[in-house]
Structure formats: C-alpha cells, structure tokens
Amino acid sequence: MPLLTPLRFPWRRLPAAGVPVKNLGLRTVASGASSPSGASPKAFNIFDRDLKRKQKNWAARQPEPMKFDYLKEEVGSRIADRVYDIARDFRLALDVGCGRGYVAEHLNKETVGKFFQTDIAENALKNALETEIPTVSVLADEEFLPFRENTFDLVVSSLSLHWVNDLPRALEQDTDEIQVNYPGMFELMEDLQGMGESNCAWNRKALLHRDTMLAAAAVYQEMYRNEDGSVPATYQVYYMIGWKYHDSQARPAERGSATVSFGELGKINDLMSQGKKSQ
C-alpha cells in the first residue's frame, strides 16, 4: 500500500466566533418540496444519496477503516475546539452525518450530556469510535432527520453536508484549508474511495478509461508536483457555528447603548489613553 508520509498540514485557524440563534431548528426539505422561509425555493437533485450510502458503507466495512480517517479526525478535532470555545454546556447534542463519530471522540461529558449520532451508513454507526459521552446511534438520512424542531441544544456536522442535495443557502464564508501530499493522483483517488468520498453526482461518468486517468495523472504531476515529487491535494473546509440561547450566557447589550461609534474603533487605543490621563 502507498505510504502517505510526509504529510503537510499548513492550516489557517479561523476565529471561533458564532452568533447565538434563538431557535436552532432541524427543519428539512425533500427534493422538490416547498421549503421553509429563507431556504432555496427548490432543491436541486444533484447527488445520488443511495449511492453515497453504499460508498460510506463500503468504506466502513474495510479491515482498516482508520487508515483513511486522518482528514475526518483532524476536522472533527477542530469542530470540537469550536464547541469548547462556547461558554456553556449542552444537555443534548446532535451530530448530523457523524460517520464513525469524529466529533464526539474529541468532546467530554462535562461539555455534552448526551449525543445523538445520525448517519446513512449503518456500518459506520456499528464501528463508532470510543467516547466518554453517552451516545444514541440513529440510522437516518441528513435530508430527512426524524427529530422534532427545537429538540437539541447543539447541532454539529462534519464533512457530510457537501453531499446533501438541499442546502438552505450557498456557503458564503472563509474556508479553512488542509493540504495533504500524496505520492500521486492514484493514491489520492484511493484515499478518497477509502473515506467513502467518491463522486456520487447523477451526471458522473460510469467509466473513466485508463488512458484518460494516466494522462490526468501526468498533467497533475507536471503542473502541481512538489520538490520531492509528491502532489498536493487541498481540502477546503467550511465551518458554521450556532447554538440555542441559554440563561447562563451573557445577553447582548441593548440597541443604542454603545458609547463608542464604529467609526472611532480605529482610535480605540488613543481614547483609552485619554481616559486614563483624565482619571
């Protein structure tokens, strides 16, 4: 099997900022159905969800599924870091498209009281990673979650929603980048397959000829190779964070109560110095 060393992770940390939301609902919309306010008027049926279930089940059945877990482990850890940045605990949490539980393994029972983990792949749920948090595994499609609105205090999802057909809005945020070096394009393709991340778009080509793949690998190598001959693959990760309001959290200040305008923020150090001199 190909060696994946050395691995390079030149990541940029994003600020763990978020906006509390009054009602973190779990309303879902079936393809072509009427959508809730603010969501896309019609879902585009781009991905074959049944095929994605088969791909993830196949990946979870492999003798050493952890061999391909490095990316999902890393992103799960980063999501957990963002949860820890929220100054409260969560009685009931949900992981949508949990896989083998890459977020839960990095959290503790002091932060999350109970974790519901849902995925479309039963084999992933059967091979879940260890966590000290009491968990409930639920076989469910991310597009049709079987929970009532306003059930959970926290909802997370890691490397799953990019295969969902109906997202309320385009993701308009900065990305966190993780770059991994591979010996070549074929090793990259093997790892994507091992992760259960092979293409499942309806318009995908059923077969790629060997000559086409060899040509693509040669072009990839020529255009992007590193000095050591490896080729980089950059994974762009989008993070969104939100939580239901809790009485233990500080309330925002009343509108109009600010004593400094936004136009003066650039002079904040001078204003603070003047305040100290006048005391």
Rank of each mutant, 00 (worst) to 15 (best):
E254K: 14
G38I: 08
A215R: 06
E227F: 11
G275E: 15
K22A: 13
A201M: 15
S77K: 10
N127M: 13
W163L: 04
D95V: 07
E110N: 11
R61S: 09
Q249M: 15
P134F: 10
D69V: 04
E222M: 09
A124H: 01
L51C: 09
Q221K: 11
A43G: 13
A128W: 06
L71A: 03
E122L: 05
K54G: 10
D174F: 09
K267M: 06
E122I: 11
L51G: 02
G196W: 00
D85G: 07
W163V: 03
G256Q: 01
A206K: 11
I86V: 12
L92D: 02
S77H: 12
V75S: 01
L51Y: 06
S230D: 03
E105R: 11
A170D: 12
L26I: 15
Q274D: 10
E130V: 13
N108I: 07
R78V: 01
F44I: 13
N181W: 07
V75H: 01
A93V: 11
D247I: 12
T118E: 01
M189F: 09
P146A: 14
S158F: 04
K267R: 08
F116S: 03
Y102T: 00
V96E: 00
V155I: 15
G194H: 03
E110I: 11
T259N: 11
V19N: 12
L167N: 07
K276T: 08
A250I: 14
L92A: 04
V260C: 09
V156N: 00
D270M: 05
V96F: 04
Y102F: 09
S248M: 02
H209F: 14
T135G: 05
P41Y: 05
P146H: 15
V96C: 04
L51F: 10
M240C: 10
L265D: 00
I46C: 11
G76F: 02
Q173C: 14
R12I: 10
G38M: 04
T212I: 10
T212C: 06
Q117S: 07
A17W: 15
P6V: 13
G184S: 08
F90M: 08
R204S: 09
A59C: 15
M195N: 00
D48F: 05
N123Q: 15
K109Q: 12
P65R: 00
A258S: 05
H106R: 03
